[in-house]
């Protein structure tokens, strides 16, 4: 597992207080439904300003964890704190908002009424028209939500989450039902938003989205965290990287003895070294051997995802 201190923190939050509590702090969090243990002890700290992807196969405990962060359900053991507060208090003060994958909308309200309704519940809310423009729903403002497409409804949910001006926004599979262009625009607005210092946590099954938009990826499997780090770190954890170099008559046996090397292939003049610590391999190749034309390839996040969440890797 990657040490969390190595995690990239791109947007340190600007806050008024001297101390700044983590946006989310989960301590020994467990959740059981009868005999089924959905969450089996999660310790996780997400700092203010981070953009974190929460990844895992179905039934990994993602939604159960998110529900406890939002105060929608109580932990069986352990605790979930949001900005140092219990989730209900954080919700009551509009510190956290969430975009759910489905539901949460009334078909017989217009898009504007939906946002006005939500805004009216928060004393310190943002301007409704401005938020609708940000979420890209100005043109469908007077349309009944029931007549909006899946992608449009998702943007209505996004506007609902933005209108309370939350410090933390949680998105559960936010781009379901969006086409490629809409999805890209959606993520651009999320990134623009995060750049203001807002903390963003999203669950997604689009691995490329996690790869492209998250500073940090938390992989969950069977109610536990199996990997936590930057996209590059998680990829390396799963299958490592491949270092390719030109080295006629390579010393294959010597390479195999290096730390963290998982395999060596020779293809003509080329040698391919699969390793967890690709930096060490590269350094060795360049300083202690005649190898040249080095290329380092990361395996896809999907490979890491499959490797880390599959049955054999527990």
């Amino acid at each position: 597992m990657v040490d969390m201190d190595t995690t990239l923190q791109r947007h340190p939050a600007t806050t008024t207080g001297a101390q700044s509590a983590p946006a989310i702090e989960l301590t020994g969090l467990t959740k059981s439904f009868g005999d089924v243990e959905a969450v089996r002890g999660i310790d996780l700290t997400i700092r203010q300003g981070e953009v974190v992807a929460f990844l895992g196969p179905n039934g990994a405990g993602k939604t159960s964890t998110i529900d406890m962060v939002l105060g929608l359900s109580e932990p069986t053991e352990g605790s979930a704190r949001v900005f140092g507060l219990d989730p209900h208090t954080a919700i009551r003060h509009g510190l956290v908002a969430a975009v759910m994958q489905t539901g949460g909308l009334l078909k017989d309200l217009t898009a504007r009424e939906t946002i006005e309704y939500t805004a009216a519940l928060f004393p310190a809310h943002r301007d409704v028209e401005e938020v609708m423009a940000t979420a890209g729903i100005t043109e469908i403002a007077d349309r009944l939500v029931g007549k909006c497409s899946g992608g449009e409804q998702q943007r209505v949910r996004f506007a609902m989450a933005l209108v309370s001006d939350p410090e933390l926004i949680i998105l559960d599979e936010p781009t379901t039902g969006m086409d490629v262009v809409t999805r890209r625009a959606f993520w651009e607005s999320i990134r623009a938003d995060a750049a203001q210092g807002r903390t963003v946590v999203f669950a997604t099954h689009y691995l490329e989205e996690a790869d492209a938009y998250a500073d940090r990826i938390v992989l969950v499997r069977k109610g536990r965290i199996v990997a936590d780090g930057t996209s590059a770190q998680v990829k390396a954890l799963g299958t490592g990287r491949t270092v390719r170099a030109t080295w006629p008559g390579a010393d294959v046996d010597g390479l195999r003895t290096l730390d963290g090397v998982e395999g060596v292939d020779v293809r003509g003049d080329q040698v391919l070294v699969h390793a967890k610590d690709s930096d060490a391999v590269a350094r060795h190749l360049l300083t202690a051997t005649p190898a040249r034309d080095l290329e380092i390839e990361a395996r896809g996040l999907e490979d890491a995802f499959v490797a880390l969440t599959s049955e054999e890797n527990s």
């Binding site: 806050t15 207080g17 001297a18 700044s20 003060h93 310190a124």
Partner: peptide, 21 residues
Amino acid sequence: PVGGFDLSTRPAPRFGGLNRT
């Protein structure tokens, strides 16, 4: 400031959120 936030700038609504709008 609790948790780095001045909660007085983010008051909880009166009447449990019930309002005219």
